[in-house]
């Protein structure tokens, strides 16, 4: 069986797919990737269906060895240097393209740029068991993925056998990973629990992502919001992107691993088209919120789906000749050769 043998797991690398749908009524969180756009594109780059499970990494990537066969991988969602070492030679690759990894080769993914998280898809998909219809790791519930936890050194991540005969694909123009500082929200369901001044403050003030930020949610720092009576409500359902405000008046943006229900007033919900951007945020990032209508939010989501389809249609075989292999240039001493060519002019 083909597998990735984990050498170093990185800060938090876990098996995730589109999430666990249909079990929130039992208190089971959805989980799934923080950046659904990255998952969609990474899977497309290696020829996987959108439902395939992949590795989500945060801040920095893992290193691993391909065992039992060659694998084809693609990183999406962030920039990172990907070193593939085989037979004593190391080649560096960027993200947003498929990479052939021979059996026995080791892969090292460095620090992520432009996002707090990235997705590594592997052709064939990760074949950890389906739990309630999903392979996503529920870190809090401790099930799904590899033993319900983030990867650890020594883990074997099983990969489904896959036909690797086609060309490796790349995305010619990756989506800009620069984070837009404004997240669109639909106000509610408990916007009326806040004073008018509180609602205005929420929509007009910058908030900073605090260090208390994980897959469950991000605590925000900024002006506190005032309540008409209190932060407490009779517990009701939570959607990914819900912004709940406990008694401190400071908002918490709830993400993939959020609880299914909660007893704090929710002033607004980040629209689904902007959730990938929310998931990419790092502590210290400054954000603002802008209110849109439900219909505008639905339209934004449909446009995001069209944009993803357009990007996937734009995938082309990697143009090896056009790519500058810096390591090869250094080895051949051609870099200094270029300099001396200039000197002769």
């Amino acid at each position: 069986m083909t597998a990735l043998r984990i050498l170093q797991p990185g800060p938090q690398t876990s098996v995730q797919d589109r999430g666990r749908i249909g079990f929130q009524a039992f208190g089971v969180p959805v989980c799934g990737v923080l950046d659904a756009v990255a998952l969609r594109l990474a899977n497309a780059l290696v020829g996987n269906p959108a439902t395939a499970a992949a590795l989500e990494m945060r801040l920095s990537g893992p290193s691993f060895i391909a065992e039992g066969g060659a694998v084809r991988i693609a990183l999406a969602g962030a920039t990172a240097r990907i070193d593939v070492s085989h037979d004593g030679e190391t080649r560096a690759f960027p993200g947003w393209r498929a990479i052939e990894v021979p059996e026995g080769a080791s892969v090292r993914i460095g620090a992520l740029g432009g996002s707090g998280c990235a997705i590594l898809a592997i052709a064939g998909g990760i074949m950890t068991p389906l739990v309630m219809g999903s392979r996503s790791t529920d870190l809090k519930g401790r099930f799904g993925g590899i033993e319900g936890r983030a990867l650890a050194a020594g883990d074997e991540v099983p990969i489904d056998a896959s036909d690797l005969s086609g060309p490796c694909l790349e995305l010619p123009r990756p989506p800009a990973s620069v984070f837009s500082a404004t997240l669109r929200v639909v106000m509610g369901p408990q916007a009326e629990a806040f004073t008018e001044a509180g609602r205005e403050t929420f929509l007009s003030s910058p908030y900073r992502v605090s260090r208390e930020a994980d897959r469950m949610g991000m605590r925000l720092e900024g002006p506190a919001l005032g309540f008409v009576k209190s932060a407490d409500i009779v517990s009701d359902g939570i959607a990914t992107g819900s912004i709940q405000v406990p008694g401190s008046g400071l908002p918490i943006m709830l993400l993939a691993d959020h609880q299914t229900i909660g007893g704090y007033a929710k002033i607004a919900t980040v629209i689904s088209a902007d959730l990938p951007a929310a998931g990419r945020l790092l502590p210290g990032a400054e954000i603002r919120f802008a209110a849109v209508s439900v219909a505008e939010a639905e339209q934004a989501r449909r446009e995001l789906e069209s944009e993803m389809a357009r990007l996937i249609a734009s995938l082309v075989p990697v143009r090896e000749g056009a790519r500058v292999d810096m390591d090869a240039l250094w080895r051949a001493n051609l870099v200094s050769g270029v300099v001396s060519a200039l000197e002769t002019e």
Binding site: A25, S272, A295, R301
Partner: peptide, 23 residues
Amino acid sequence: LVETVPTFRSLLVHYDPCRTSAQ
């Protein structure tokens, strides 16, 4: 319709905006 989450006094209805609309 994607799934529903019953709570004490309300039902949270999750839907796919690419297949329907809230309205």
